[in-house]
Amino acid sequence: MGTILTTAQAGTLESSDIMITVAPAAEGSGIVIELESIVMAQYGKAIRQTLAEVLMEQGIKNAYLKAVDRGALDCTIRARALAALGRAGAVSKGEML
C-alpha cells in the first residue's frame, strides 16, 4: 500500500468542511500539497501539517493533494484526507480503522 492508484475526492465545500482531492504522482516527485482556506492566516500551517501527517502515517511518499478548506476542524481534515486516500486505493478500509 501507500501508492495512489487513481484520482479521488472526499468532502464538500460546505462551511466547516474541507474538500480534498488526491491524484497519483510519479515516483520520486514527493508530496505536493495545494491549499486554499478561509482561515489561511490563522490555520494554514496547521492544516498543511495535518495533511502531511496523514500522508506520512499511511506511508505515502508521492502524491498530489489539493485541499479547499471552509474552516474544517482538525478531526474533519484527517477524516476527509483518509477517505480520499481510501477511494484512491492508497489505504484499505481495514488500515483506516
Partner: peptide, 10 residues
Amino acid sequence: QISGAPEALT
C-alpha cells in the same frame, strides 16, 4: 481545545 490555537494575523 476544539479548533486549535489560531496564529495571529500579520
